[in-house]
Computed example of a mutant assay.
Amino acid sequence: MHPVSLFALLTASASASITPVTPRQSAVNQNVIPKSFGVTAGQGKDQVQVGSCSGANNKLIPCYCPPAPDSPEFLSKLAKALTDGFIFSKEQVAIPITLEKFNDDSDTSVDTTKLRATAMIQVMQNFNLTTQGVGCPGVSVPVLGQMQQTGILARSLSGFGNEGK
């Protein structure tokens, strides 16, 4: 190999390894998601309405609701919605926050916390991702409802849903 070619190759390799590459985010930062939604799926099965269980304020919810906050299915659907910006199409169910902004755990502002809660509730309410509005109702995730109203990441479960009862 010609010495100049070898030098050019080594220089190109060295500069390529120094160039910073910003990885594209594709996963959800679980640090900005509550450890619990306040309701545990399958609790308080209703004897009259089969397939229904107890949610917040003893409202009936599907027994499969809600998924756990660390459920791979929930996290992947949330990441997809945040990445796409929509749950279904651009005409329906726009997500109010980007994945990058959602994941920024240094942003604990009231506005961002409310947007995070809204995005998670939207994913819950459209959980099957095939039919709009088919999923888990808001009473299955009272902690997210509190976050959406107050803009504070809830740490205490007292007074919520069916947990701790």
Results as ranks from 00 to 15, higher is better:
M124A: 15
A68W: 02
T130D: 06
M147P: 09
Q146K: 14
S140R: 07
A56R: 00
K90A: 12
G42M: 06
G133Y: 07
A94P: 13
P62I: 06
K77R: 10
V32I: 14
V93L: 08
K35N: 06
P96A: 07
I152V: 12
K101L: 07
P34N: 04
S89H: 06
L99Q: 02
C63I: 08
L115N: 04
Q132H: 03
S76E: 12
A154G: 04
G38V: 03
S89I: 04
F160A: 08
E91R: 12
G38I: 02
R155L: 12
I152N: 15
L75Y: 01
L157D: 14
T150C: 10
L75P: 03
M124W: 04
C63N: 00
N103F: 04
N31L: 14
Q30K: 10
Q43N: 10
V141H: 04
K59E: 11
T98Q: 01
L78Y: 07
S156Q: 05
L153A: 12
C65I: 07
N31H: 13
G85H: 04
A94Y: 02
P69K: 08
F88H: 02
N103W: 00
V48W: 14
V32Y: 00
Q125P: 06
G159C: 10
R116N: 03
T130K: 15
R116Q: 02
D46E: 15
L60V: 12
C53I: 03
Q146S: 15
I61H: 11
G161L: 10
C136T: 08
G133T: 03
N31F: 01
F88I: 03
K59I: 12
K59L: 05
Q92C: 06
P96N: 01
D70R: 10
E73H: 00
V139P: 14
K45F: 14
G44R: 03
G44N: 06
T83R: 09
A79D: 06
S158G: 12
C136W: 11
D84I: 00
I97D: 00
G135Y: 08
G138C: 01
Q122C: 04
V141E: 01
F86C: 05
D104S: 10
S89V: 02
S54M: 14
L99T: 05
D104M: 10
G133M: 13
I87K: 05
P62G: 05
P66H: 06
C65W: 05
T118V: 12
T113M: 11
A81M: 07
N103D: 11
S54W: 00
M147E: 10
F88Q: 00
G44K: 03
I95D: 07
G133W: 08
T131H: 10
C65V: 07
S158M: 05
Q125S: 06
S54F: 00
V143R: 07
K101I: 02
I87G: 01
G161P: 08
K35S: 14
E73P: 05
S36G: 02
L60N: 13
F37L: 15
V32D: 01
F37C: 03
C65N: 03
F86M: 08
A94Q: 11
Q92T: 09
V48L: 08
